[in-house]
Amino acid sequence: MSSEQIIFYFFAAMVLISALLVVSIHNLVRSIFLFFVTLFSLAALYVFAFADFVAITQVVIYVGGVLVLMLFAFMLSNKELLSKINPVKGIIRVNHIVAILVCTLFLFILLNVIIKADFESLSWIKTADQINGKDNTVHQIGIQTMTRYLLPFEVLSVLLLMALIGAAHLARKEKKV
């Protein structure tokens, strides 16, 4: 086993374990901070697929932006949830068992599809020219953004403006009528 594989599986285990902890832990603040760990190790996995720019974007946008937003929203909306951490037990249990059943069945379907489809032996994957470690993907992404994907890029900028205005409009103080 090469060191590359060891690091990859370490980060993969970290993603899955911390994600499981995020959804199973009761303390909300801890679960949000564990979400941070998940996103960071996910960024490490992107590096292994030769997507270093995507990994950096993930760290900047998710860890820098989304997580801070979530902490803010959590602290603005959770006065009483902090004091009573364990709500009713009985009703939730049944609910959880059904959800676990649905999720594991769905997981089996997904894994089955991935194994059956056997992507590695597809012809276009075999003949594709893969990114190797020497390619400059940032350079490539810059050129692609300004040529082939210019229209999606511009549409995305308009959408971001709309989301900004919409969020500001929603979050403002309502005037009493």
Partner: peptide, 14 residues
């Protein structure tokens, strides 16, 4: 990773 020239996967990930 299998689209070295197009870069489609990484662009749409972004």
């Amino acid at each position: 990773r299998f689209d070295a020239n197009g870069g489609g996967g990484q662009m749409f990930a972004l």
